[in-house]
């Protein structure tokens, strides 16, 4: 029996977050789960939608879990799941933080392949969720930008933020830079408004680059520039299909600002 379980790849009490769940058959669900050592995995959970199941409340997104499963092929079968009490059990995300949480999940679903271990991204995700719980707008924006940067880095598209890619000189806070998506920042010497308007790519300040490099995104314009830069960089890897959570977030912003 032990031999059999081992041959079927039994993983025990692995930290995890549920990214998404889809109903499957009458009472089961298909989960997309994110773990540090096994990356993103697909799991079948049987009987979880029946009235008696104790797992229903547990297997919700944004809650730190400890899960066990075995797998033979691409999909695994969940055997146990409990809330990771040592991690605080997770606080409930409300409102805007919830929408941002969906965005993080969608990024992970779109950018990570199943079964690729990403312990660094798991750590970044964990930290980002904790910041979302705090709820204020600046913390939320900071958390999203840092997560985006670290996720890109972890999947092999790390950003050059501290030096000019042409001259190799360190980035100066007061300088103005043009960011080449594939390479990195290049200092702009002639900076008239017309010149900026005609420049291809993203124009941003040195202090934004340095802020992003050191995870210190405090000022409003730094956050705005960092957001533009990361959006462009992510778009390269996300392909043409729009992010649905971003659409919903924008629709919600529209509701809140009109009338």
């Amino acid at each position: 029996m032990v031999q059999m379980i081992h041959s079927r790849n039994h993983v025990i009490l692995q930290p995890a977050y549920v990214l998404h769940s889809t109903p499957y058959r009458d009472t089961s669900v298909l989960l997309e789960v994110f773990t540090p050592d096994h990356g993103r995995i697909g799991l079948v959970v049987r009987g979880v939608r029946s009235a008696k199941s104790r797992l229903r409340g547990v297997l919700q997104p944004f809650r730190p879990l400890l899960i066990s499963w075995y797998s033979k092929g691409d999909l695994g079968t969940l055997t146990t799941a409990e809330v990771n009490v040592e991690e605080g059990g997770g606080a409930h995300l409300g409102g805007r933080a919830l929408m941002s949480g969906f965005y993080l999940n969608e990024l992970l679903l779109r950018l990570l392949h199943r079964h690729d271990p990403h312990p660094a991204s798991f750590h970044s995700y964990d930290i980002a969720l904790r910041k979302l719980v705090l709820g204020d707008d600046v913390t939320l924006q900071q958390a999203l930008r840092i997560f985006e940067k670290e996720l890109l880095q972890d999947i092999g598209y790390g950003l050059v933020l501290d030096r000019d890619v042409i001259t190799g000189e360190p980035v100066a806070a007061e300088g103005l830079y043009r960011y080449h998506l594939e390479k990195g920042p290049e200092r702009m010497e002639c900076v008239t408004a017309a010149h900026i308007a005609n420049t291809l790519g993203i124009v941003l300040h040195g202090h934004t680059l340095l802020g992003l490099a050191h995870n210190e995104l405090s000022q409003g314009d730094v956050l705005q520039e960092a957001k533009k830069l990361l959006r462009k960089l992510l778009a390269v890897h996300l392909g043409r299909q729009p992010l649905r959570s971003r659409e919903l977030y924008n629709e919600m912003q529209a509701i809140m600002s009109t009338q």
Partner: peptide, 12 residues
């Protein structure tokens, strides 16, 4: 979480 998101959206 989806129910909460829905409630929040409609509440706004």
């Amino acid at each position: 979480v989806e129910g909460e998101a829905t409630a929040h959206y409609i509440a706004e």
